[in-house]
């Protein structure tokens, strides 16, 4: 899929554009007495950019955490690639082809940009400890193979100059970009972005929007993103799902959602009776 040479055969599992890639059915999640998500259903189609929006505390991040297996919902089902998904651990779900970025940057601070993005390839590297210890030969070849893919991502994200800089020393905007790079390195079928533009200035937002669109269009990666900047959401996304107090209040193309009275109420605030 993404970042492999053009002309290479597509992943056999990857469906056609427009097929449902992931479906969430009647998912409910609660922490003790607090209901974070109540009976939410929606789907994410192959090749689209799906936005999840809603006021603070609406359950957006909880939803992403459910999708990548960090939380296990008490009720409901998740269907991925046409199969009902069992309760898996997060690292197993990463192997299934779901990658994500975090609201608060979760990079590996002690490592360089290059190493951070290389960690995105960990699920694809298979050489065992014996070969790793010897290094020369298979392990080194494997490393170089993956380094080439990572270098293409570095080129794509225009971060060549910070390749060997420790990520702890990078400014915020670049850290966000490195985190996107790490998620891309896993060549995910579904990419979850949790507020990729939070705290950025206009220029940085424009850069990030461009990367998101390029990832989606050039590599056909399906993207689900949470974002608070409505301008960005309306421009980027194909379809939007709106959450409020853990319930779904709207679902559809940006224009339709914009006109939805419930959504307007949730954002502008009306007296809840």
């Amino acid at each position: 899929m993404a970042f492999v040479d053009p002309g290479q055969i597509r992943d056999a599992d990857a469906g056609q554009k427009g097929d449902v890639l992931l479906r969430v059915e009647d998912v409910s999640l609660s922490f003790g007495g607090v209901k974070a998500i109540t009976a939410i259903s929606f789907d994410i189609k192959q090749g689209e950019i799906r936005a999840i929006i809603g006021p603070n505390g609406a359950g957006k991040t909880s939803m992403l955490n459910v999708i990548n297996g960090f939380y296990h919902p008490q009720e409901g089902e998740i269907w991925f690639r046409g199969k009902k998904r069992k309760a898996l651990k997060p690292h197993q779900i990463a192997n299934e082809g779901i990658a994500r970025t975090f609201q608060n940057i979760a990079l590996f601070k002690g490592m360089s940009t290059l190493d951070n993005i290389m960690t995105g390839r960990l699920t694809k590297m298979k050489k065992n400890m014996f070969w790793q210890a010897i290094w020369r030969g298979p392990a080194e070849r494997e490393e170089i193979e993956h380094r080439e893919v990572v270098e293409r991502i570095i080129d794509f994200l225009e971060i060549q100059h910070i390749r060997k800089t420790s990520v702890g020393r990078l400014p915020y905007g670049l850290q966000k970009r490195v985190e996107l790079g790490r998620a891309l390195a896993a060549e995910p079928a579904l990419l979850l972005l949790d507020e990729p533009m939070a705290g950025m200035n206009v220029e940085e937002k424009e850069d990030m929007s461009r990367f998101i669109i390029d990832v989606n269009q050039q590599f056909g990666t399906t993207i689900a993103l949470i974002e608070h900047d409505m301008g960005v959401v309306m421009d980027l996304s194909d379809r939007v799902v709106v959450l409020d107090y853990g319930k779904k209040i709207g679902d559809g193309p940006p224009d339709e959602v914009r006109r939805n009275q419930d959504v307007i109420d949730a954002y502008l605030g009306v007296a809840h009776d």
Binding site: N68, F70, K89, P90, H91, A94, N95, A99, R100, F102, A106, L107, F108, K109, G110, M111, T119, G120, L122, T123, R182, A183, A186
Partner: peptide, 13 residues
């Protein structure tokens, strides 16, 4: 070492 939760989510067992 650097962030165990993020590590798990990118696929480290």
């Amino acid at each position: 070492r650097d962030m165990d939760i993020a590590a798990e989510i990118i696929g480290v067992n």
